[in-house]
């Protein structure tokens, strides 16, 4: 069964350890600006929301890519960017409804979550269990909208 990332903002403290781990895993250096997962803070820190690619079953990024650079890894269930085929046209970035595939000005290609080959480093780095690696049908971002403003 394919697995992907599920994020629970209620547990997120906004520490960015997930972003720090992601940038190190993929770029070999620390900097949240180079992470594939993002945490956004709202309302003076009342809400911190982590989000990244949830590996949509019908992936728009994949559908619009003119060069077939986005491929499904059958085993992982992840959509991966074949960098050798990516021409940096950004069509996928426009198509993604969540904005979780991003153009990287340094490489001239796009980056997205690849689930770290099945061992997501953001999950390992999160101190509060706000990010879980679970069956795709259960994943996504949940926001508790009943909390008092």
């Amino acid at each position: 069964m394919a697995r992907s990332l599920a994020m629970e903002p209620d547990k997120c403290t906004g520490c960015l350890q997930c972003e720090i781990a992601c940038s190190f895993e993929h770029e070999g250096v620390f900097n949240p600006a180079r992470s594939r997962i993002r945490v956004f803070e709202f309302q003076h820190g009342r809400l911190a929301v982590p989000y990244t690619c949830t590996q949509c079953e019908a992936a728009w990024c994949q559908k619009v890519c003119p060069t077939g650079a986005i491929v499904l890894d059958d085993q992982l269930g992840a959509k991966l960017v074949r960098t050798e085929a990516c021409v940096g046209c950004k069509a996928c970035a426009i198509a993604c409804p969540y904005g979780t595939i991003e153009y990287n000005p340094l490489s001239g290609k796009v980056d997205k979550c690849d689930l770290c080959g099945g061992d997501p480093q953001c999950v390992a780095a999160c101190p509060t269990g706000a990010i879980a690696y679970m069956e795709t049908s259960l994943s996504g971002t949940t926001v508790n909208t009943t909390a008092e403003a």
Partner: peptide, 11 residues
């Protein structure tokens, strides 16, 4: 709620 500074696992 509680909140963290950059990189802080204590919050």
């Amino acid at each position: 709620t509680n909140t963290a500074c950059f990189g802080c696992t204590i919050a």
